[in-house]
Design a binder for these strands. Structure first.
Lengths: 337, 337
DNA sequence: GTTAGCACTCTCGGGGAGAGAGTGCTAACC
DNA sequence: GGTTAGCACTCTCTCCCCGAGAGTGCTAAC
């Protein structure tokens, strides 16, 4: 059972370790954290905490390090969140409004801001419709008489483009007409229906346009765009002092591998912030990592904001900042509509 | 003066050092590279080569390392390019054709392929029109009665989008008309003219659409999209065994810093491959790096392909591979039109 | 239950010492 | 005169040892 005093000590161990990255000794807690018991008492309590699995030992004569369970307990019940101060809020919103207009720049900027605020790697995914994969609108632009550029606007506001060769040359006006006709038949169509429609159409060029659209819709369903920043900052943390570990970290934070980390929050509601610590992560090779993750948006479209870093992470700072940025993004997304 | 024998020795030193990443001793050259003179003779020649600045010494009792001048001489006159074999060509073209259709995926794939082929970081930029910054076509899509999505197709085939709020609600049909009208007035317009045009227009909504278009055109002029891959592979090279150096490398290969490296080839012709070695790079902090760079495309639109890595680079492999990929991309680009 | 005291353990950094690798030079050789 | 064997010399690299220091766990006293 975690008595009040042991809980206090566990909290102090976590805080001290997060700050210094050194194993925490009983003496350090008494001296630097103002515990009013002796170091011997702390040692006894630490031994209990270790028995119960909250902290560990790198070796006999070293201080204590929180275990995943220790961090989990800390996050769940010991930690006091450090609110995002008024100044910091102002700075963040100010930075965020620098690029209003282009969604992709905005997302990449958000990753940069969040990474800066928490000193770790930040990941932001582009908002996607939950139902994602329907066409909102298509356009045809003449590039030359034999080729049209097909531009598909998807229901989440993203664009996809493809070149379509034309058997029969067409002018821009003709393409416009054709696009209008197709839009009428393909309102909010999904990939499968578009593919079915393509087979019914007699006109070769029109069929190939519809087929290309179907492909674009299907491609689009699977694609998740992620924006990442803060890698080189995060690598300065002492856990990566060893070149092998650093190399591992770089290799593992390639965008396409992040997907599995972010999946854990696919079912989270906007407003909810999740923390996944060390061994709680499904990926075996990420046992030293934690992820703080939130969804933003609403039923129409939602994306993910996350911070990824070593388990030794300032959770009390990171969690409210991820939550704050997620709520800001939700708001901005609503404003955009 | 570089006698024939000294040139041979210099070439061997470069090859051996590139392969082993260890300072090259006189004995190693005789034993492993089959020179038919004694190691003492090689030592004499090496001393001369060092006087002339082609190689250096990390310390008294260590072997020799090529200097930047040594590499330069090697690349310029000693090296025999290692051609891209038929198998390798087939593999590359096969991979490249996997994603024909979507330009951005194609570029990112190209970076991956090139990085794999040379074992270093590869960078590819999206082709841009030399005259870049003219509008090809604009489209308006209704999102809701008060907001339209402005999609601009630029003369290099890239898309830019922006939300435009509407004072007076409009239907898709009305937007279509308006787009057609504006396209007629704004054919191949550049940013400045578009901006001027905006002031002449009375209709508030139309003026704001034109203004937004002007902004998109101007944004577009400056933006260079770069695709990068191979970082974690390159970091495995022994020059990054030291964590500080590795960290530096990661920090420096952020896309936005690469721009200055690639600028050196802005005036290169497609087909030409340039090599910039160590101190020849303008950036002081990149003295240990080399860049092999080529332009691809033609007068209408051109982009850059480059490999970035330590000066100890297999130039004879890298150069032909960069050239080959660049020529392939030029070809594919032509096919797309 | 708390604490002082103390033996014990483990790490970390510094200091040789020795091995090994290479060079530069000299003198002999072809 | 170029080439080479031989050798002294230099420098690095690795291993090992040792002492200092940090911390713990336990015991006995409070």
């Amino acid at each position: 059972m975690l008595t009040e005093r042991r809980a206090t000590i566990l909290g102090l161990v976590v805080r001290e370790y997060v700050q210094t990255a050194e194993p925490v000794s009983s003496k350090a807690l008494v001296d630097r954290r103002g515990l009013d018991v002796s170091s011997a008492t702390v040692r006894n309590e630490m031994a209990r905490l270790e028995d119960e699995g909250y902290i560990t030992h790198p070796h006999t004569s070293a201080g204590r390090i929180p275990s995943d369970l220790g961090y989990r307990t800390y996050v769940q019940s010991l930690m006091a969140e450090e609110p995002v101060g008024a100044d910091e809020q102002r700075t963040i919103t100010h930075q965020l409004h620098q690029v209003a207009g282009a969604l992709d720049e905005w997302l990449s900027l958000t990753a940069t801001i969040l990474a800066g605020a928490v000193g770790n790697v930040a990941v932001v995914t582009r908002p996607r419709a939950v139902t994602a994969g329907r066409l909102r609108h298509l356009q045809l632009v003449e590039l030359n008489p034999d080729t049209a550029l097909l531009v598909a606007v998807m229901d989440d506001g993203r664009l996809r483009q493809r070149l379509v060769p034309l058997r029969i040359p067409a002018t821009q006006a003709q393409l416009q007409d054709r696009a209008a006709r197709l839009n009428a038949r393909m309102a909010a169509i999904d990939g499968a229906s578009a593919r079915a429609l393509a087979t019914e159409i007699a006109d070769t060029d029109e069929a190939s346009i519809v087929r290309a659209t179907a492909e674009l819709i299907e491609e689009h369903r699977g694609a998740e765009e992620t924006y990442l920043d803060g890698l080189s900052r995060a690598l300065r943390q002492p856990e990566f002092a060893d070149p092998d570990r650093m190399l591992n970290a770089v290799a593992r934070l390639q965008a396409y591998r992040l997907r599995s980390l972010l999946e854990g929050a696919a079912d989270a509601q906007p407003g909810e912030t999740r923390v996944v610590i060390g061994s709680e992560l499904a990926a075996d090779e990420m046992q030293d990592w934690s992820v703080v993750i939130a969804r933003y948006g609403d039923i129409d479209a939602a994306g993910t904001v996350a911070v990824v870093g070593p388990t030794r992470m300032a959770y009390e700072r990171t969690i409210p900042r991820v939550r704050y940025i997620a709520s800001l993004m939700g708001q901005l997304l609503r404003d955009m509509r």
